Simulated assay, not measured.
Amino acid sequence: MDMRPVLVALCLLLVSPITGHWWASGSQLVMDPMVICKKTRRLKGRLAEICKKEPTVLKEITKGMSLGTKECQHQFRNRRWNCTTTRRSLRKILMKDTRETGFVNAITTAGVTFAVTRACSTGELLECSCDKAVKRKGNPRMPPEHPAIGSMADGDWEWGGCGDNIQFGYSMSKAFMDAPHRKRRDMKMLVKLHNNDAGRLAIRNFMRTECKCHGLSGSCTLRTCWRKMPPFRDVGNRLKERFDGAAKVIPSNDGRSFIPEGPTIKPPSRLDLVYSEDSPDFCKPNRKTGSLGTQGRHCNATSPGVEGCELLCCGRGFDTYHTKEKVNCQCRFKWCCEVTCSTCLEKKAISICR
């Protein structure tokens, strides 16, 4: 499936304040970052500068949206809603304010932050560079611990190398993804801006410290350390956990913020995802909600989890088919240094929801 029109249409939705016309061009759109700006001509401030003067940044922003979409599909691959990019479904999903919408907004904004920051570090953007001067409060002789190197209390160390310029990626993502919505203060926009920021913070607040040893014969008498973004899969996993624990919110009395729906719900932090509308069950096709249903989906007949046939098929039952596939077998190590294998046919059961 060609995802380019879908991804650009998603971009238009995220930046356009006129949500009723976000799918106007449909499949005629191509993966051109400038399309985003052409469809939102009434631009001001930093967003206008990006669109008019920084096409290379737009290219990285589009890469980031694609990265976020792919991660969304990975995280929801075994659930009733699988982050489908089918246009009519995605359009309906994003017009609501459900948990799923919150995750899409957060992971897409995180993808933009990640892609722009990475482009700074690799020298692909003239507008920025890697972070070469990290300032840290406290004793400069005591850098933070890192799982790969343990405690670095012994020996000297200094900040250096080419750290990830997360501040530039964060600010660029904020300018591009949030700017069109800042003047609006309805509930949907408040929730959207909150989830956008949660996506960015899932990267910025979890930067890692990496170090390189220097010294004779690998003695590591001096270490050079820098800050690096977490792998994007870790970002996706973290936001998926936030999705599972997302808080339902309602407008506060001042009309400029939100509060938890009930007294037993913990007030969400900046890192948490929020939503204001309940999700459909996604069991059956429904044009109104954008649900495609789960009929025909592959499921795991032996799993009690969300990917199991009982839950994924919504109690409708499933059919199991047996197939054979070629696999390597009877592998042997041959001195020196080769592994030889035979090809065997292995039976495989495939379960599909009715």
Rank of each mutant, 00 (worst) to 15 (best):
T109E: 00
G102K: 06
M142A: 14
C162F: 02
G123F: 02
R136Q: 12
C120H: 08
K135H: 15
I166T: 14
P147L: 05
I93R: 06
G111P: 00
M95F: 14
I93T: 10
E100I: 12
T108Y: 08
R136F: 11
D156S: 15
S171C: 07
V112G: 04
S171N: 15
G155T: 02
M142L: 15
D164H: 08
D156K: 15
M142F: 14
G123D: 04
S121T: 10
G169C: 13
W157S: 10
Y170Q: 13
T122Q: 08
P147H: 01
G160E: 01
T101W: 04
T122P: 01
S121H: 08
A115M: 04
G102R: 05
P147Q: 04
N165K: 06
T98K: 02
K135Y: 13
G155Y: 00
G111A: 07
L90Q: 09
L94E: 06
C120R: 04
G163Y: 03
E127L: 15
R91A: 12
A115R: 05
K137D: 11
P140Q: 06
L90R: 08
E127S: 15
L94Q: 03
L126G: 15
E145G: 13
T98H: 08
S89Q: 09
L125W: 06
C162Y: 02
S89R: 01
G150D: 05
C128S: 05
I107E: 01
W159N: 09
E100W: 08
H146G: 14
N165V: 03
M142T: 13
S121G: 09
S121N: 08
F114G: 06
G138A: 03
T98Q: 05
I93D: 03
Y170L: 15
L125V: 09
P144S: 00
G163H: 02
A133Q: 13
G160F: 01
E158F: 11
A110F: 06
I166S: 15
C130R: 05
M142P: 02
G150Y: 04
V112R: 07
A133F: 12
L126I: 13
K137A: 13
D154Y: 12
W157K: 06
M152S: 09
C120G: 07
D156Q: 14
L94H: 03
